[in-house]
Each structure stands twice: as C-alpha cells, then as structure tokens.
C-alpha cells in the first residue's frame, strides 16, 4: 500500500532513485582513469629557462605528477584564489616549495614527489646513475585485484545512501506526517504500533533494495564494476544495514516534536557516527577507550562488511561479530522506536 502511494509521488521517487546514480556517474567519470584523484603541482616559470629547469620538468612528468606551468603573475592569481595545493618557484640557484595549509594532505604528498623529482633531476644532470626507487604497488586491502575509484565509491554510496535515508528521510517523513496529523486516524483503530512500524521499515527496505539494484546495474553497465562477492551475502548485509538505520530513524523521530527539531537531533547522531566510524579518517591516534567505544558503533562494521563482499569478494566469515553488532543496534532501536512512537 505504502509502496503504491510512494510510486505515485513521481518526484520523490525520481530523486531517491536517481540521486545516488548521478553521484556515481559524476565522480566515476571525473576519476575514471587510475586510482583516485591525481596530484598536481603549479610550476612557476623561471625568468630564463636553464638546463636544470628542463631536467626538473622532465623528472616531474616521469613521476606522474600533473604539472601546470604558469607565469609568476598567473601563478600568484591562482594561489590567492586558493586553488593551488603546491607550487614550485625558482629561488636563486634552486627552488622553493609553497604549500597550501588548507590542503595539507594533498600538498604534503605532492611536496614529497617534487623533492624526489629534484633529486632525480640532479642525479641525471651530474651524469650519476639513476637513483633507485622503491617500487610502489596499489592494492585494495582485501588483496584481490585492484579496482578503480568508481568501484571503491559504489559500496560507499550504497551504504551512505542507506544511512542518510534511514536517519534523514524516514525519520523526517515520520515526524512531519505526525505533525500534519496523518497518523491520528490510525490511533483510533486496533492496529498495534509495532505492526505499523514494522510495515514502514519493510516498505523502506524494498525501496532500498530496488535502489541498490539500480546503482549496481548502472555501475556495471557504465563502469564495468562487478560485484566480486555473492549477491545473497550482499542482500543480507544491505537488509541488516537498512533495517538498523531505518529503526534508528524511527527511534529518533520519537524524540522530536517538530520536523525542525528532528533535523537537529538527527544531525547530532549522524555526524559523530560518521566521523567516529572511520569513514573519513582512522582513529589510530585516538585514546584506547574511544577506540573500543567506536568499535561498538554500527556504521563501521556495516561498511567494512559491504566493501569486503563487494570489492574483495570475501565471504561473511570474520564479519559475523560486526554484523551481529549491526543487528543488535537495529533491534534495540526498533524496540525504542515502538516505545517512543506516538500517533499524534
């Protein structure tokens, strides 16, 4: 029933289905060749082109850096717009590196490469033998075949999409329907709350599965990304994750009076979950107690299992505990949701 009503809301349907696909297409196309974003450096032209300038440029290109050669004025303008991460300028007989403190990760890596290039260039000019470099190999952590950026992105998009759907759309819709009194009429029927909520979760689950299927299909047709693991494992993980985060959304919606209030509450939960779950940075430097606590959050084990199956073709062995954590959170959240749910 819900599903039928939902299908009639064409605009909502289009965006829920199309948005992740568009994201995938967008990022996938930008970073199509090679592993992730390429490092680039701005090279300020010397007044007089000297032999060591030529050697450095050659070495930079050999090291696969994207070099952008600009005049001093052009480079200055670009720098002040904040678009430059790292810039090599002539300084007396040698060079000077200018790094953008806002883009340190990128700038730092670039600086390393530039220095390496300069060592190479000096060696070549003095006729010394080519310095030996330690060979680098790019691999995904599961030791399977290294894949491109889009295939790294896809499970992340699936997971993120599902979390945001659970926390933001589901809970928000729930609160706003309650605000508009759409549930009041149900309150005078003998329908138990838990059946109503379970129905809502199942309804959303079907939407998510369809959404995931579309995303995987597009990934396969456009970028040739294969699901490396078994589809039944994937389905199991997705179902657990969806159930868990939907229940989260419903539970939180029981704490908000208005949709504005809900926006605040869901952000309060979403951001710590996101930041602490190792999506953006690892927590190796954090205190031990924090790491232990974080290990109990549901997002990280969910994403790990999803990536392991999808990208590395791993089985579920070794993810049992993680998935159990996800399921436990889901169940607890559902109980809380039933307890807190109000019709009006």
């Amino acid at each position: 029933m819900e599903w039928r009503l939902y299908a009639r809301d064409r605009v909502a349907m289009f965006w829920t289905m199309a948005f992740p696909v568009l994201l995938l297409l967008g990022f996938g196309t930008i970073f199509r060749d090679g592993g992730g974003p390429k490092l680039s450096v701005v090279r300020v032209q010397s007044a007089v082109q000297s032999p060591h300038d030529a050697a450095l440029d050659q070495a930079l290109t050999d090291l696969q850096l994207k070099v952008q050669t600009l005049t001093k004025a052009e480079a200055e303008a670009r720098w002040s717009r904040g678009e430059t991460a790292a810039q090599v300028e002539p300084d007396g007989e040698g060079y000077r590196l200018r790094l953008n403190s806002y883009l340190m990760a990128q700038a730092g890596a670039t600086a390393g490469l530039v220095n390496q290039a300069w060592l190479m260039a000096q060696a070549r000019m003095s006729g010394a033998p080519e310095p030996q470099r330690i060979p680098v190999q790019v691999e995904s952590p599961g030791h399977k075949r290294s894949t491109n950026y889009a295939s790294f992105l896809l499970p992340g998009l699936l997971g993120l999409n599902l979390v945001s759907m659970g926390l933001f759309s589901v809970g928000m819709v729930n609160v706003s329907y309650r605000e508009k009194g759409k549930f009041r009429r149900l309150a005078v029927t003998p329908l138990p709350k838990w059946i109503f909520l379970l129905g809502q979760v199942l309804h959303r689950l079907t939407i998510t599965v369809v959404q995931a299927a579309i995303l995987i299909l597009v990934g396969r047709l456009v970028f040739g990304i294969q699901n490396q693991g078994s589809f039944s494992h994937l389905l199991l993980i997705m179902t657990l994750g969806t159930g868990c985060f939907m229940a989260f959304g419903f539970a939180l919606s029981g704490f908000a009076e208005t949709s504005e209030g809900y926006a605040a509450i869901s952000n309060l939960v979403f951001f710590p979950l996101m930041l602490l779950s190792g999506v953006y940075f690892t927590l190796d430097a954090a205190p031990a107690w924090l790491q232990h606590t974080v290990a109990l959050l549901p997002l990280a084990p969910f994403l790990r299992a999803l990536r392991a199956v999808f990208n590395d073709g791993a089985g579920l062995a070794g993810h049992g505990l993680g998935l159990a954590i996800v399921a436990a959170w889901g169940f607890a959240a559902f109980l809380l949701a039933v307890r807190r749910f109000r019709w009006s």
Partner: peptide, 23 residues
C-alpha cells in the same frame, strides 16, 4: 475526527480497504 488527514494520493476505495484491514 474533526479533520481527517489522509495521504494525498490515496483513493476512497483504497482507504476503505486499508482501514478495514486493521479490524
């Protein structure tokens, strides 16, 4: 109720079937 707020795109037949199914 004083104001019965239903989903916009539900039809009377569906609404009666749906609410009937709760009893």
């Amino acid at each position: 109720l004083q104001s019965t707020s239903l989903f916009n795109k539900i039809t009377p037949r569906e609404a009666l079937d749906l609410y009937g199914s709760y009893y």
